[in-house]
Amino acid sequence: MIDNGRLGDLEAVAREMRYHLITMMGADKPHHFGGSLSSVELVTALYFYKMRYDPANPEWDGRDRFVMSKGHSVPTQYAALAMLGVIPMVELPNLKRLGSILQGHPNACTTPGIEACTGSLGQGLSFANGIALAARIRGLPSRVYVLLGDGELQEGQVWEAAMGAATHGLDSLVALIDRNRLKSQGDVDEAKRLEPLEEKWRAFGWHVIGVDGHDLRQICGALDEAEGVRERPTVIIAQTVKGKGVPFMEGQFQFHNAAISQEQLQLAVESVKASMGEETSA
């Protein structure tokens, strides 16, 4: 159970992460604002609360691992890794520039702290299963966390992997679903219906926890609960708002991948800065 002081610290981390996200992406170039912003609290809880991870030694064999399966949201992970000192903070403005270690989608070969190459959706859960199976064979204590988009669940491979994880009883594995309800061209469920989503995962043999994906107390509680689950994987279905924290982006699919103007950037920075000045909920 997380105490109020710790919770306040995490909320401050999330606000700072949003600030880095917005300034890293900047104006005039298309970036994946919506899904990056909706996943901030989930990534915050993983790197700054739950994961056993040594930023000074990101290759430590016994580390917990995080796979960003919704690879287009990797700017959130870059921000987290920069805040931890795994990648230099000065690299962030080089996002997606020629020669940068910060590729448009995660590249484990070029970027410290990135565990998997993703970007073509649907592959990360299978990859995470592979990590969990290998860790089991090798006797590593590592737990594995994988973040999926809700639109990504329309890829069939996710359900192949969901069956596999349950078959092997991978209780070291936690999938988090960023349920922001919007994909790049509109409503997720209008294209291929996910609901009833919790029942689907339960039917696939998973332990299911539903949370408000912007409530760090709930997210941390769910991550704690998952550690006590035995012989089955856990999925945390996080209800989120696409574009969270930047009012003109919230709930708008058009900011899935879009360039914003200098004026919009100013507005976005002000929104995020204003929230940074707020009292914590502690």
Partner: peptide, 20 residues
């Protein structure tokens, strides 16, 4: 891995990334 080749290859990649 069952009749799931895509899942098999990604799982193998995850295993390789973890020392197998």
């Amino acid at each position: 891995m069952g009749i799931a080749e895509a899942d098999m290859v990604s799982t193998a990649a995850g295993m390789a990334a973890t020392g197998m």
